[in-house]
Write a protein that binds this DNA or RNA. Sequence first.
DNA 1: AATGAAATGTTATAATGTACCAATTATTTC
DNA 2: GAAATAATTGGTACATTATAACATTTCATT
Lengths: 164, 164
Amino acid sequence: MSNQPSPFPSERHDHDACINAALAQAKAICAEQGGRLTPQRRQVLELVWQEHKPVGAYELLERLREAGVKAAPPTVYRALDFLLSHGLIHRIESLNAYTGCATPGIPHHGQFLVCSQCQHVAELDDSAIHHQLDASARELGFVVERQTVEIRGLCPLCRETDNE
Amino acid sequence: MSNQPSPFPSERHDHDACINAALAQAKAICAEQGGRLTPQRRQVLELVWQEHKPVGAYELLERLREAGVKAAPPTVYRALDFLLSHGLIHRIESLNAYTGCATPGIPHHGQFLVCSQCQHVAELDDSAIHHQLDASARELGFVVERQTVEIRGLCPLCRETDNE
DNA sequence: AATGAAATGTTATAATGTACCAATTATTTC
DNA sequence: GAAATAATTGGTACATTATAACATTTCATT
């Protein structure tokens, strides 16, 4: 029921293509939704997409500064808020960090597989899981607003190369 | 597949009984596992159980101080770490807060329904959900260490009394 | 009592996030 | 195009959450 090809990109996939695709989609989505993908927001999104790992807000801040931007914490948090509200990134609650959304467009909350060794994150958006949780909650009279599902463990690669 | 009677306790259930039961179980579990439920740890656990709402570490700190204990942040965090490691409380990641474990004994990670209005938390420990997540992850070659499932929404009570 | 391990006390600081208000830039309206 | 309005950004200060590091005390066992 998973609607993506391979949530764990290989180590040497064409990551520039990832970034470019994400930026292109972001541009399209913002145009559609009436959001303004300003240069600063775009730059933060690009920084988030540098790796398939969640990035902390202050790490982004540092990278912005390294890039010559005079930024303060609110600069980053504002950009993150914008990107979150347009479904372009997700926040990983268990890490206080942010990661690019694999299937942007409609704001949603996916399921995340977080490797405890290499920190890579894979997003699932598995509708079976979503519905299962929704059903279990409804059964108890609970109206679901938002699901946070984060799974920690070993990704396929780390599982092979290391056995701790 | 839920193995508990009613995860949302009524407004005027016998909460002293809840607290006493939790403390008694904690005592038994610590005895069994060789953990020392010192007076301070016990007191923090009791404070966590004051309500069926997650409590922040600094709120606990304040309550400890109100109770005449000279405490600093590490005091609280150490107690919380102990209680977490023995499966007596859970941390709600999306709230940076802690809540009593409904089914202590064996360390585990349940599913949590968090009411966005009254802040009450219900713990599920639904094995169907657990296995579903485990299966989805395994299918991708991911070895699960820990599941974080937190559902925000309206609890049955708030759903009735308020329609926002 | 002597020893080592576990728990606690204490200070300082790290890491994450927000409130607030001023200045600027973009968008709309006339 | 000029004025009014809204959205974005700049920047300071501060709030909240969490931990590092080291001294002291208490506990468990000889």
